[in-house]
Design a protein around this nucleic acid. Structure first.
Lengths: 208, 208
DNA sequence: ATTGATTTGTGAAAAATTTGTCAATATAGA
DNA sequence: TCTATATTGACAAATTTTTCACAAATCAAT
């Protein structure tokens, strides 16, 4: 595992889409799918699907198509979805709770192991099976490499630092506040307010 | 309002980032900011910031920079963030509740006016100030142009249809299921599971 | 074994997006 | 008023990403 550096990021972002399509096909008992089939399901061009895969190897059979099960295994392995990942959620508010119970996570192998907060009212309370812990008391070397920031914008940077200190290597940030980049830490930002704003922009151009 | 068609979508997606930076600058009492300042805050190159703005007009003063307040007004108006937007949430589960209380929405002028569900256990119950309504009973002509889908994947397509029938023109879809595109309806998908998968991919290439 | 119908993988072309550069222009100070 | 400094807006170049198009490969049928 060393040479697959320069994969375009749009390609990486499409892999989960393909993964989802393949699961569906497998559940439907489809054994083989052509790039046209896959592309139609995924909402992309067939040539794009083939090009995307080509960065990782050759998975198809010319004249036939792609063996669903095999391709699923391969993409699974490329994205590391063949193993379980422990995830820490920082922020036991509405969003944190929603994420804890988000059905998709478990299905894809993401297991929430801890929920943190700094509110004394919440610390010690249970959220499902999990007891909310004081974010201050978090040990240094956890083996969760993924952290989710579901705290208010004002606390985001501080929380990020804490997570990183406890060994988190990848952060999914819902706070809306940009986190100043740290070496070797991968961050993705999801900003739901931005998404709504993008919608209203397009609404206004549609009704030109 | 008619000619601003071909704006690159990455440009549109950056406007909310600029918007957020400008709010911060204004709150800090900064009157003028250069493209360098703005770009550093937004995490982009200065030339990109200027290029992005150039699609919409000229907002800066050469030798000086951009008057924060004026630029804020302009971007506000371009993105329609100078008016309030009514939003319907479909799905009164954990995610729906989280979105209802999401502090960012109100601040940017998005007002949740209705929460819908199909679960008889939930219909009639209150969620904050809002009474959960039966999604079947929704009238045809609401003046909310934005709907949020926060239901399980299996129900997503059906719910989308219902929302569209009641006048929704833009959909923010959290279900993970692709919604088959309808004419004149803008859809954006947020898939949190995909985001985690993208993180695990990058984790594995980082540790190459 | 040969033919015909498919469909992949890929190199090259096209399109889209980002970045660099600089003339034009505004401000502030002498 | 003139000069030095700063910074925009836009054009051009560079880079990235998508799309095209076709040779090579596989299968099924004769």
């Amino acid at each position: 595992m060393e040479k697959r550096s320069k994969i375009p990021e749009p390609t990486v972002a499409r892999l989960p889409i393909y993964f989802r399509c393949l699961i569906e096909l497998k559940e439907n008992g489809v054994a083989v799918a052509s790039s046209e089939d896959m592309a139609a399901r995924a909402g992309v061009k067939a040539s794009q699907f083939r090009k995307d895969l080509s960065y990782f190897g050759e998975f198809g059979i010319q004249g036939l198509g792609y063996p669903v099960s095999h391709l699923l295994d391969r993409i699974s392995s490329i994205m590391q979805l063949n193993k379980e990942h422990e995830v820490i959620i920082a922020g036991a508010g509405n969003l944190g709770s929603a994420l804890l119970n988000y059905p998709g996570f478990q299905k894809w192998g993401f297991k929430i192991t801890r929920v943190l907060d700094n509110n004394p009212q919440k610390i010690g309370k249970k959220l499902g099976d999990i007891t909310i812990e004081d974010i201050q008391d978090i040990p240094k070397n956890l083996n969760s490499s993924i952290g989710i920031i579901a705290v208010p914008a004002s606390a985001a940077q501080q929380v990020a630092q804490t997570l990183i200190q406890s060994g988190v290597k990848a952060i999914l940030n819902f706070s809306g506040k940009k986190i100043s980049p740290s070496k070797d830490i991968v961050v993705r930002n999801v900003d739901m307010t931005h998404e709504l704003a993008i919608l209203t922009y397009y609404l206004s151009v549609e009704n030109k």
